[in-house]
Every structure is written in structure tokens, then in C-alpha cells.
Amino acid sequence: MGSDECESGGHKAEELTAQETALYDRQIRVWGVDAQRRLSKSHIMVSGITGATAEFCKNIVLAGIGSLTLMDQQLVTEEALQANFLIPLDGTDYGEKSLAELCCNSLRDFNPMVQVSFVSGNLLQFDGEFFDKFDAVIVGHSSSTTKKIINEKCRNRPKPVAFYTVDCRDSFGEIFVDLQNYTYSKKTKDGSTTKCCMTYPSIEDAIAVPWKELPKRVTKLYFAMRVIEKFEHSNGRKYGETGVSDLSDILNLRKELCASQALNESHIPVKLLERVLAAGGKEHPPVCSIIGGTLGQEVIKAMSGKGDPIKNYYYFDSYDGKGVIEDISIPIAT
């Protein structure tokens, strides 16, 4: 939706159209015209439609990105509907329509200036070139293996593709961010602009950081999530396929992991693991709203080049109400 009418002499090319200015008035007051223009040229792909990614999609479509591509082969199930407001419940037969297709229709409605489409298939079947079409890829509701593979594909492209994962398990949520080598400009207190560079690890490298090398006071949720992830992986479970009955197995795994990582088991309290197990893949809508809002803001930052991005994990837990950033990367030796 570039404007083609404003190339008048001397003035900066590509002003926003009157329509865009009217629609985006309130947010342009927050992040400025240039950021809005860059945003409108970004192409984003979301795989795995959950309550949290539905929230995310709504946010970035409203904000006015260039295009959004959805991927999710699942058919509508009660679980899929639970935290998703994109699928109307008006008694229509969804037939063989996939989640992606159904959500696509609602999202188009939110902002006619954004191209929303869906792709059939499974994320893993696409080769690296497929990802060149996108500036950012967001993966929800996926196994740790899938996340690693897709993250690698995004890292090995000529033009970097930002990579995010998002998981909401009932009372809490986790976001992972990989912007590879990310440069952005930032206004300093005295009004001048400086360049900031950030280096992100891949999800594989982040997870591989030995626990005893992590900064002190990393949220317990980080450890709990790694234990559950490992549990799902080694027991051949799908994402979120857990229950309280898995507790004794999980506690064994905790013992094993903590021993190998030299971490005191009290850093992963039983109560917390119980909570995560009980959640399974269920989502709590207010948490989806918060995590989807935060992820939306992060992607808007990265696509518009404005604002300090999160590096590289974010947690929200409704039990203590904190929204915390954790930097899980091996510090660069200086």
C-alpha cells in the first residue's frame, strides 16, 4: 500500500495516504510516520494458530503491516476454539476448512489495507527459500524440534528472517526471540541518534547455555519450561500433551537434569511443575491477550526498527503478575 501520489519536488517521497493517516492517526502519534511506513512493507508468517497467536495476528493487522500469511492445517476442534476469537460460532459448518483459512477471513476484515492469506501444508515441508518471502516468522503450538529446525532455516537465508516462538500454558506464557544480528537506531537523552547492535543466539544455542552460567535469578519458569519440553520430546508427546499424572516422571527428569546441570532442584519447585503439567496445551485468554500483545509490540519494533527489542526470552505469569525479560545467551567474552 505504498502511496504513489506524493512524489512532488523536493519533498520526501512516499508520504502516507490520507486514508492511512486517518486510520493510523493515534499510533503514528506514538511511533511516527517513518516507522509506520516501514511497518507497512513488512511480511509476516504465523504457523500454529492458538489463542496467543490469534491475539498477535489481530494486533499486527490492526497496526498495518504489509502482509500476513497463516499456516495451520488443523480442523476446528473445541480446544482450538477455546481462546480464539477469530472463528465465528454462528452454526456454520466449517467443513474441511483449516484453522488458517477460517482465521484468515476474520483478519482480513480487521484492516482492508493488509494482505492476509493462508498457505496449506506443514511448516516442516517447506525448504529455506520459502522463508525468503518473509521478514518475520512466528511459531506457535510446536514441538521443540520443529522450533529448532525452522529457526535454523530462518538463520540461513541471504536476508535475515526474524524468528519468534510463543507458548501459553494456562496461567503463564513464554516468548522466544531471535533477531540474529540486529541493528537499530535509538534516540539518546540528549536528542542525538546512536546505532545499537544486538547479537542473538539461535533457540538451540540458547537452550544449550549451561544453567550454571545463566545470570543469577533467572525466572523459575525458564527451567520449568525446559524440563517440560524435554519431557514432551523424550516421551514422544505432542506439544501440551501432558497431565498431572506425569508428575512422578517429571520429577525424575528434574532430578536428572538438575544433577547434570549442577542446579539445585529447588529452582524448579514441584508446585510450578504441577501447574505446568495441569495446564497441558490449554490457554487462559487473559494470558493470551498479554502475551499476544507483547509479541505484537516486539514484532512491530523489529519491523519498524524503532524501540529496544526483547533479548531473548519473555515470561508473563499471572500468579505473580510479572512480565520479565530474560537474556539467555552465552555472554561474549571481552
Binding site: K58, P286, G296
Partner: peptide
Amino acid sequence: NIVHAVATTNAIIAGLIVIEAI
């Protein structure tokens, strides 16, 4: 007297309202 507003902050705040309401 226009107040700056973005969707994401509103979504986050709404989530927090529901958590407190519960």
C-alpha cells in the same frame, strides 16, 4: 487533547484487568 494509543498496550492492560477481576 488526543491521547496516543496503540492496540498492543490496550490488549495487555485488558488481560491484566481480567486477571485482577478474577
